[in-house]
Computed example of a mutant assay.
Amino acid sequence: DEVRIVVIGKTGVGKSATANSIIGEPYFTSRPGAASVTVNCEKKVVNILGKKVSIVDTPGIFDTRVSSETLEIEIRKCIAMTLPGPHAVLFVLNLNDRYTDNDYKVYKYFLEHFGDKILNYGIVVFTNADAIQRANQSLDNFLENSPETLKDVLKFFGNRKIAFNNIDKSQTRIQVQCLITIIDALKQGNHNDPYYEDKNFRRVDELLRKVMQGEEKHRKTEEQLDEAKLEIKKLNEYCRIRDEDLKALKLEWPRINAAKDLPQPENYCEKEDKSADT
């Protein structure tokens, strides 16, 4: 069983920290602050609860160091890294931050670039779950007074949500189990289309397959070339030895030729026998 996940959100909400909590190791670079750490797509494949889980961390939206054109290309590449498509898209928000227009713009950004269909695969992940614990409230109660725009986003995502505490590692396992349960239910609900895809992804998939086929042909050609090089090396070694033998023979030839002119040795045993008869 396989689960493919893409993590999205604006700069500084804890995307990479959440991705690290899910895979159980500090693979993705993460540190507190308003500046985005992730600039390029990063992917990690791990085994979680007997499932092969692929998770892709994306650049932070509204990162001032990256142009909008570059960001769009990179985000599309991130989602394409889950070919044939992600089963879940995690929309990350920070419970400690006031929900603003920029947060809503992140949601609108993905809606505009990937279409309404992506809503069927979205899950809202709230980081800094310790804020709920300090308030001694449930997530639903904590969000009661949230802005209407956030309530709309949750509604559009089918009210699929979960809170993550990325600091307290003792909570990691149960959080990940809950997330995988939500994703499994999501896959069942989307049984006809268990993962998000579009024609661009299919085109990329076809190109990747062609590249892989080309690489396989290239690999076989390289192997044949290596075999030919080995045979040539053996032939060159044979020729080298033959040339050395020929040179040695040429050096010995005068002595061998001179030896042919020597008188034939007499058979002294035969002479002695004849003398005895006389």
Rank of each mutant, 00 (worst) to 15 (best):
E2D: 14
V3C: 01
R4W: 06
V6T: 10
V6Y: 00
K10D: 14
G12A: 06
K15C: 03
N20A: 08
S21F: 03
I23F: 02
E25C: 06
E25M: 04
S30I: 09
V37W: 01
V37F: 05
N40R: 12
K43C: 14
K44I: 09
N47L: 04
L49T: 06
G50E: 11
K51H: 00
K52T: 01
K52H: 02
S54C: 08
V56F: 00
G60N: 11
T64D: 13
S67P: 08
L71F: 09
E72P: 03
E74W: 07
K77T: 07
A80M: 10
A80C: 11
P84T: 05
G85E: 12
L90N: 02
N94P: 13
T100W: 03
D103C: 07
D103H: 05
Y104W: 05
Y104G: 08
V106W: 00
V106C: 07
Y107E: 06
Y107S: 04
L111W: 09
G115H: 06
G115L: 12
G115D: 10
D116N: 14
L119D: 04
L119N: 03
G122R: 00
V124E: 11
V125W: 00
V125P: 04
I132S: 00
Q133T: 10
R134E: 05
N136M: 09
N141R: 05
N141W: 02
P147L: 13
E148L: 09
D152F: 07
F156N: 15
F157N: 12
N159F: 08
R160H: 03
K161P: 08
I162M: 08
I162F: 04
A163H: 01
F164E: 13
F164M: 11
N166E: 10
D168F: 03
S170R: 12
Q171R: 14
Q175K: 02
Q175C: 10
V176P: 04
V176Y: 06
Q177E: 15
C178Y: 10
I180S: 06
I183Q: 00
Q188D: 14
H191A: 13
Y196Q: 07
K199D: 15
K199W: 15
R202V: 07
D205M: 12
Q213N: 15
G214H: 05
G214K: 10
D226Y: 12
A228N: 05
K229H: 12
E231L: 13
L235A: 13
N236Q: 15
Y238V: 15
R242L: 15
R242D: 11
E244W: 07
D245Q: 14
K247A: 12
E252R: 11
P254T: 03
A258D: 13
A259E: 15
K260N: 07
K260M: 13
P263Q: 08
E266Y: 07
N267L: 04
Y268E: 02
D273H: 14
D273A: 07
